[in-house]
């Protein structure tokens, strides 16, 4: 009877992924695009035809051609290479920022939702305070105060996202606090912490996944936005936000490709993450397994 072992997830998860993708072609598309972005992030440095930092003043501001697929920028750097290489930095910032806000938001939300009382009240007011600021301005403030580095962009993006996670988790935990299965878990010898962490919290994952995917897109935009206004990543590092900012100066003179392609990649990334939400939710929801 080894087939009823509870640790059968490995193969089952893959099969389930296949099932989810087959059921919803949009999900399959978004997972495919996501795989493409991950590939770029890991191997982009080796795959690109040119050094993203190498300047060539002779061939500055050339339109897209067979040599330079996305054209060249004002210093003659290959836009295609820069766009691909930038993927790693942009994804790193957004994944780390989302991971941090996911963990902190989950802990805060779970504690507030489970114990309630004054703890809940205090946490909610703190989150309200964060939400009361225009979030992008808050992020700018945090980066300006902490110093202009990539780490600080990550922290700033994480902080402004925490309230969203905390609220989702708080609501999901709160409605399950007195559920029969939570009480049954306590009768089985689980303390409050174990019940919360292993029995109640996992049930909040499906809506959290939707939040994660929406937030990922948003975090990328946020990071790019901060770079666009000159905070965080500094030139000549390839990063989508900076590239759009630099390219914007040349749109009027007809050199549209310098800004368009990084902008397009940024849009595609956000689009991918937003589409992935439903798929991710289905993936972590056991009720979708048939």
């Amino acid at each position: 009877m080894s087939d009823i072992s509870p640790t059968q997830s490995g193969n089952g998860m893959l099969a389930h992924l296949g099932h989810v993708m087959k059921e919803n072609p949009v999900t399959a598309l978004s997972f495919g695009l996501f795989a493409l972005f991950v590939l770029q992030a890991f191997f982009g440095h080796w795959l690109v035809p040119y050094d993203p930092l190498a300047t060539n003043s002779v061939r500055a501001l050339e339109a897209p051609s067979a040599d330079h697929w996305f054209g060249t920028d004002q210093l003659g750097r290959d836009v295609f290479s820069r766009v691909i290489v930038a993927t790693r930095l942009d994804l790193t910032i957004s994944v780390l920022a989302v991971a941090i806000s996911f963990v902190i938001g989950s802990v805060l939300g779970a504690v507030a939702g489970y114990w309630g009382g004054w703890l809940d009240a205090v946490l909610n007011r703190i989150l309200d305070t964060i939400m009361a600021f225009p979030l992008f301005v808050l992020a700018m403030g945090i980066v300006a105060a902490l110093g202009n580095t990539v780490e600080n962009i990550i922290y700033a993006t994480a902080i402004i996202n925490i309230p969203f996670y905390a609220r989702v988790v708080r609501a999901e935990v709160n409605i399950r606090r007195e559920a029969g299965f939570a009480l049954a878990a306590r009768l089985s010898g689980n303390g409050h912490l174990r019940t919360l962490a292993f029995h109640i919290f996992p049930n909040a994952l499906p809506p959290m996944m939707v939040q994660v995917s929406l937030n990922m897109g948003w975090a990328i935009l946020n990071a790019a936005g901060l770079s666009f206004v000159g905070l965080g990543v500094r030139p000549p590092t390839p990063e989508w936000g900076i590239m759009v900012a630099e390219g914007a100066n040349y749109i009027i003179s007809g050199h549209w490709w310098v800004a368009l392609f990084p902008g397009l990649w940024l849009m595609l990334a956000v689009f991918t993450f937003n589409l992935m939400g439903d798929g991710l939710r289905d993936l972590v929801d056991p009720r979708r397994r048939t």
């Binding site: 509870p6 559920a179 029969g180 299965f181 009480l183 049954a184 878990a185 029995h199 996992p202 049930n203 056991p286 009720r287």
Partner: peptide, 8 residues
Amino acid sequence: DSLNPRHN
């Protein structure tokens, strides 16, 4: 309600 939806 008394069975955890995530446990078989």
